[in-house]
Amino acid sequence: MKEKQKRKQAAALSYQPEWTQAPQLIAKGKGKVAEQILEQARKHGIPIQEDPALVELLGNLEINEKIPEELYRAVAEVFAFIYQLDQQKQN
């Protein structure tokens, strides 16, 4: 028997420190919605990091909900990854 393929999931975060104390979930979805989220990210040059465990946890949040403190470290690693990419592009 073939192993059932898991549907793709995606989550998008936003962090604007001048307005919020923590990053917040601005989009999430599975299947076709996940593909649309990823397509929009690529279209707008937004870096994508694959972390299935983190996406699974973020999927439990509501849209516009701030991430809980338990996820600060994992999300900080994502933002550090994005910062490094931005620095590489500038050099």
Rank of each mutant, 00 (worst) to 15 (best):
I26E: 02
E77H: 11
V33T: 12
I63C: 06
A34C: 14
I82R: 03
L58G: 00
A10G: 04
P68G: 09
I67E: 06
Q49R: 13
I48M: 04
A41R: 00
K66E: 05
G29A: 13
V55S: 03
F79Y: 07
K4C: 14
P68H: 08
W19G: 09
E65S: 02
E56P: 00
I67K: 05
L85T: 06
I46H: 07
Q9C: 12
A12F: 05
K32R: 12
F79S: 01
G31L: 03
V55I: 07
A22M: 15
Q40G: 06
L58C: 07
L85F: 05
D86M: 14
P68Y: 04
K30A: 10
E39Q: 06
F81L: 07
A53M: 13
I48E: 02
Q16I: 05
N64A: 14
Y15T: 04
P23S: 09
L57E: 10
E3S: 13
V33E: 02
L61W: 09
A80G: 09
L85Y: 12
I26P: 00
I46R: 01
N64D: 15
G45P: 00
F79T: 02
Q21Y: 08
K2I: 14
L58S: 10
D86R: 10
G31T: 11
K32E: 06
E77C: 11
Q87T: 06
